[in-house]
Simulated scan of single mutants.
Amino acid sequence: MRSLRGLVVAGALAAGLAGVAAPVAHADAVAYLVNVTVRPGYNFAGPDAAIAYGQTICDRVAGLMPYGQLVEQVKSDFNSSDYYQGAYLINQAVNELCPAQIWQLRQSAGGYTVPA
């Protein structure tokens, strides 16, 4: 009787948890704009240009551009040799504009080391 009761409780818990979905990450363009316009060095022409550029980063990540190549592209676009400036913008774009791509970005960046 005791094992039957445990089985019933376990089944009820499983049925209840089946209806609970993981939270869905949503884009937050305002947070992205605040973070990339406060930090010096990007000098976007305006908010629309900043968001458009962030979307190109999202597209590159979705298109499976390797992380190292992505960093180099961002550095080139901003005429910068600063790895951290490029990485920061990539991080902000993916986290705030296309959070569904976070896993892909992490996969691509796995094992990447900053060139000396």
Score class of each variant (00 low, 15 high):
residue 11 G to M: 12
residue 94 V to R: 06
residue 73 Q to G: 09
residue 44 F to S: 05
residue 112 Y to P: 00
residue 5 R to Y: 07
residue 62 A to C: 06
residue 81 S to A: 14
residue 25 A to L: 14
residue 50 A to D: 04
residue 62 A to Q: 09
residue 115 P to N: 03
residue 35 N to P: 03
residue 42 Y to E: 07
residue 42 Y to V: 06
residue 34 V to P: 00
residue 90 I to Q: 06
residue 93 A to E: 08
residue 94 V to E: 06
residue 100 A to Y: 00
residue 98 C to M: 06
residue 66 P to V: 03
residue 38 V to C: 06
residue 50 A to L: 07
residue 60 R to C: 00
residue 7 L to P: 00
residue 85 Q to V: 00
residue 76 S to T: 14
residue 78 F to I: 03
residue 83 Y to S: 01
residue 2 R to M: 08
residue 44 F to A: 03
residue 80 S to K: 03
residue 49 A to S: 11
residue 73 Q to I: 04
residue 27 A to F: 01
residue 46 G to C: 05
residue 67 Y to T: 02
residue 10 A to D: 04
residue 45 A to L: 12
residue 64 L to P: 01
residue 39 R to V: 13
residue 102 I to K: 15
residue 111 G to M: 11
residue 20 V to A: 09
residue 47 P to A: 12
residue 6 G to M: 00
residue 100 A to V: 06
residue 61 V to C: 09
residue 83 Y to M: 04
residue 23 P to C: 07
residue 79 N to T: 04
residue 28 D to Y: 03
residue 52 A to V: 03
residue 98 C to L: 05
residue 68 G to C: 08
residue 85 Q to R: 09
residue 48 D to N: 11
residue 61 V to M: 05
residue 34 V to Y: 09
residue 43 N to Q: 08
residue 76 S to G: 11
residue 33 L to T: 10
residue 54 G to N: 02
residue 5 R to H: 07
residue 4 L to W: 06
residue 45 A to S: 15
residue 114 V to M: 07
residue 97 L to Y: 05
residue 60 R to H: 10
residue 37 T to C: 07
residue 103 W to N: 13
residue 70 L to T: 13
residue 24 V to Y: 00
residue 18 A to G: 14
residue 114 V to W: 00
residue 113 T to C: 02
residue 110 G to S: 13
residue 26 H to G: 06
residue 61 V to S: 05
residue 69 Q to K: 14
residue 27 A to E: 03
residue 22 A to P: 01
residue 69 Q to S: 13
residue 64 L to S: 12
residue 5 R to F: 15
residue 108 S to Y: 05
residue 65 M to L: 14
residue 33 L to S: 12
residue 85 Q to H: 02
residue 36 V to P: 09
residue 96 E to S: 11
residue 107 Q to I: 08
residue 90 I to Y: 08
residue 111 G to C: 11
residue 65 M to D: 13
residue 6 G to S: 07
residue 79 N to D: 05
residue 100 A to L: 00
residue 27 A to T: 01
residue 6 G to D: 00
residue 85 Q to S: 04
residue 31 A to G: 10
residue 111 G to V: 11
residue 116 A to Y: 01
residue 63 G to T: 12
residue 114 V to L: 10
residue 58 C to P: 09
residue 105 L to P: 03
residue 7 L to Q: 11
residue 15 A to T: 10
residue 74 V to F: 04
residue 33 L to G: 11
residue 100 A to D: 09
residue 16 G to K: 02
residue 40 P to W: 01
